[in-house]
Each structure stands twice: as structure tokens, then as C-alpha cells.
Design a protein around this nucleic acid. Structure first.
Length: 423
RNA sequence: GGAGAGAUGGCCGAGUGGUCGAAGGCGCACGCCUGGAAAGUGUGUAACCGCCAAAAGUGGUUCAUGGGUUCGAAUCCCAUUCUCUCCGCCA
């Protein structure tokens, strides 16, 4: 959430910067400022009226105590008018505030000045590329064929018991999932991240805090009976651990890692891009979250980028890092690096991680603040990144490592799988 | 799901109609003490929204949430939410 004060003071600059995100916020911002003007005016009225009532109430109290009932009753008559006027002013103020807040949460985060202009993924900037793309020849199979051949993931079975996008992992396929999860968590723990096991259901306040609501309402599974949402990522429960929290500088940086299943409705997705493991309604992901001082958030973003880079190197997958352009960056993010691995049989890049700096956008929504030594408050910065999401990593491992003997497991994973070949 | 109890500041906890934004303690900050620390000791320590160029100052709001009674509510009434205990169910 952008701060009202900033919107008022830097109206033109904010409008310009949001254009990088392909958003014209002029009308929205002007409405917000107008509603805030209304709110302030009615608050001033209300405050003045309340001040008078408070003073009168005090006087009346004193008069009653000293036995001057007649005078007290005279004053009492004056108060009823004040009260109704104050209620009216309050109603105006509340309504203006409510309307203003509804609009305020519709404004996306400002992109970092270095975020390139652009309308789609085409305009993203490739900032790094590494690893050898294997030449598999024409006999190479896509992962949806490989998983059938080796009987490790069954899409049809998932289809039967739940529906499309809910695969069943079995045998070495299931073991590979568990190996990857443990590998990722161990790596993060070694890098100083404290492990969290979060709930998989969240309330609306949490969805609002990290920005999924109201922007992405409809992308989360919702349970009306209990008014709860299935998490689309562990980012939501983990970051919301710090909702309404005041941190001290010595608590920082906060570093958490969490494995969770993730649930996404993916409404509107279809076609070949979603085949096999490419897009699922339920998938596994290990997420890293950091909370930092504002001036530390960009160095931290680079640190997280390096960390994810290290994971992909250990898995021996060819990958590239793209810096998302304004049109492709999310509602909440100020800057995002996407990591993509090359899937040799599909011959395409698959997004496996997204590392973002939200600056104070989530912190403002969540009231996550830092109180410094002088007692002053300022919003914290939040960041997160996938480290990593499993399905496309699995797809790339299966496709890139296929041989005539079977699928070779990367060395780093063998201690976790207990086998070096799926055959 | 049934019965009962409760929700107060960063935390614990007192407070049953006015002088209560709230005792006391813990924690925290600064000082004294100390070779340094601990202990001891002194002082200070809520957030939010306005007014003011800003600081100082000042008005307002906030004792789970929303409504009500009253000149005046942490305190009384109603509703809601949540927590705890017991019972039921259960991995």
C-alpha cells in the first residue's frame, strides 16, 4: 500500500512511475486525494465538537460533585446538540475514509526506477545466463511421457480423485519430491534461514496483508463456510507472522524458510503451456522470506538472487535470470528477478523462482514497523523468493537428465533420494 | 456441537461510572554506581488521525470488534469475533 502522505506530496511522480507498470492511476489518485480532503474537513469539525463536549462533561461532573445541580442541568441541555452534530461529522468522515481506503488498496506498488518499461514478458531483461543446454537428440521425451514410462507421476490418477492439475507422485517420483524439499530446506537453514511450518489456510486479513486480496481474489481457493483461503504460497502465512508487529533494529534481518503445498485456481489458463507439470493447482514449494531495514532491502534482494543461483548450480540445471519489466511485474512488487531453467525436451524456459522486493508495500498494509533507538517508527521492507518451486524443477531434471539407462539424479540430491538413477 | 470463564499498553497484571491513556511489575532506553559486567539505583518509556512550514505545542480517537445507555464508559446493556476450561467428537 502506498502511503497517503506520499500520494499527496508526490502525486505527479507517482503517476509517472506507475506508467512503467502500464497503469494510469491519475483518476484513482485524484479521487483518493479528494476523499481524503473530505475526511480531513469532517474530522476537524468532529474534533472541535468533541472537544467542546468533553469540556462540558468535565464541568458538569465538577458541578454535580459540588452540589450545584441546577447549573449542571443547564449545561446538560447544551450537550445534546453537540452530540448529534458530532455524529453527523463522524459519519461523513467514516464514509470518506472507507471509500478512500477501498481505492487506496487498488494502487499497485511503485516499480524501482531501474525496472525497464515494457508491456509483456517479451520486454523482460535477461541479466544472466549459465549452464550447458544438453543436446538430447530427436528421441528425447517430454516429462509427461517420461513420468509414464517410469511410473513416477500419474496425472490420470489425480484427475480421477480430484481433477486436472492435481498429480499423484509415486515410488521414486514421490521420493524425489521429498528429497528436493529436504534439500532446499537444509540449504536455506545453512544460509541462516529459520524454518517455519505454516498453516495452509489463511484468513482474509492475511490475504490482504501480503496483497493477494483484493487484487487476486478469485485466484485463491476459498472456503466460504469458514471464510478461509488456501494459501497460494507460503509467503502469505510466513510474512503475515509479522502483521501488526513492531520490530527492533536488532531483530533484523528476519530470515525464514518454509516448505508448503501451494494451491492456485489458475483460472483462465489452458493449452500446451499448462501440460504436465508446467502448471498445477497444487504444487510444492520452498519459500524464503526476509524482513529488513529499508536501506538493506536491495542488497538483500541481490543476496537472495545469489542464493537461488547457488541452488540451481547445485542441481546442475541450465538457467537464466530475467529482470521483469514494468508490465510483467506483480501488483505488489517493486523489483522482481525471475529464474528460468531450460527444459531440453520441451525446448523452452520454465519459470522456477521469482525473487522480489516489496519495499514497504506489504509492510504498510500489515502495519509491520521498526522502532529505532530514538523511539521513531518506520515501515520495514519485505522480500521473498521461491527457493525453489518443485514441479518445473522436476520437469527439467527429468527431461535434461534422461539417458538410455534412465534418469540421472544430480549429485547434490543423491544423499536425499538414496538412489542415483530412475529406471 | 453443549456448558462455563475470559479478552486492558511490547509482555504480565490492577482497575465496576468522572480527576483513567490507564496502578504495579517485567522489558526497553538513558544516567549513576563498577576496572568491566551483573546486582543496585534514578529518570523516561503506547499507537493512530488532525491543526501548525517544522519543532515545540495542541485537539481528537483507541482498554477484542460493532452498536447502545449516560452530560460523562475500560467500568453498565446488546450483538459479534476470538481465547481458555470441562463435556462430546477425533488425527
Amino acid at each position: 500500500m502506498l502511503l497517503l502522505q506520499d500520494i499527496r506530496e508526490q502525486r505527479a511522480e507517482i503517476i509517472t512511475r506507475l506508467k512503467i507498470k502500464q497503469v494510469d492511476a491519475t483518476e484513482l489518485i485524484d479521487k483518493i486525494i479528494h476523499l481524503d480532503d473530505v475526511r480531513r474537513e469532517s474530522q476537524q469539525q468532529m474534533d472541535a465538537l468533541n472537544a467542546r463536549s468533553n469540556a462540558l462533561a468535565k464541568e458538569i461532573g465538577v458541578l454535580f460533585k459540588s452540589g450545584k445541580a441546577t447549573e449542571a442541568n443547564q449545561l446538560r441541555e447544551q450537550t445534546s446538540d453537540l452530540k448529534t452534530q458530532s455524529k453527523e461529522a463522524e459519519a461523513t468522515m467514516d464514509q470518506a475514509r472507507r471509500e478512500m481506503e477501498e481505492l487506496l488498496v487498488l494502487l499497485p506498488n511503485l516499480p524501482h526506477p531501474s525496472v525497464p518499461m515494457g508491456t509483456s514478458a517479451e520486454d523482460n531483461e535477461i541479466v544472466f545466463e549459465e549452464g550447458k543446454i544438453p543436446d538430447l537428440g530427436s528421441a528425447a521425451l517430454a516429462h509427461w511421457d517420461l513420468v509414464q514410462q517410469y511410473r513416477i507421476i500419474d496425472f490420470a490418477l489425480g484427475n480421477k480423485i480430484t481433477g486436472a492439475g492435481f498429480p499423484v507422485y509415486q515410488g521414486k517420483g514421490a521420493r524425489l519430491q521429498r528429497a528436493l524439499i529436504n534439500f532446499f530446506i537444509d540449504q536455506a537453514a545453512d544460509a541462516g534461514y529459520t524454518e517455519i511450518q505454516p498453516p495452509y489456510l489463511i484468513n482474509a486479513e492475511s490475504g490482504f496483508g501480503t496483497g493477494q486480496l483484493p487484487d487476486k481474489d478469485g485466484q485463491m481457493y476459498y472456503i466460504p463456510e469458514d471464510d478461509l483461503y488456501l494459501i497460494p504460497t507460503a509467503e502469505v502465512p510466513v510474512t503475515n507472522l509479522y502483521r501488526d508487529v513492531i520490530l527492533k533494529p536488532r531483530d533484523l534481518p528476519v530470515k525464514h524458510v518454509a516448505y508448503s503445498a501451494c494451491f492456485r485456481r489458475e483460472a483462465g489458463s489452458y493449452g500446451k503451456d499448462v501440460r504436465g507439470l508446467n502448471r498445477l493447482h497444487q504444487f510444492d514449494k520452498v519459500e524464503i522470506v526476509q524482513i529488513t531495514e529499508p536501506e538493506q532491502s536491495y542488497p538483500t534482494l541481490e543476496e537472495m538472487r545469489e542464493y537461488v543461483t547457488g541452488l540451481l548450480r547445485k542441481l546442475e540445471l541450465p538457467f537464466r535470470i530475467v529482470k521483469l519489466c514494468g508490465g510483467d511485474i506483480s501488483f505488489t512488487s517493486a523489483m522482481t528477478y525471475d529464474f528460468e531453467v531450460f527444459s531440453a525436451a520441451q525446448k523452452r524456459w520454465l519459470e522456477v523462482s521469482s525473487v522480489s522486493n516489496f519495499e514497504s508495500f506489504q509492510a504498510n498494509r500489515m502495519k509491520l514497523r521498526i522502532k529505532d533507538e530514538t523511539g521513531k517508527m518506520h515501515p520495514a521492507h519485505t522480500l521473498n523468493g521461491s527457493a525453489l518451486a518443485l514441479p518445473r524443477i522436476v520437469a527439467a531434471i527429468l527431461e535434461n537428465n534422461q539417458t538410455s539407462e534412465g534418469i540421472k539424479i544430480p549429485d547434490a540430491l543423491i544423499p536425499y533420494t538414496g538412489f542415483d538413477l530412475i529406471s
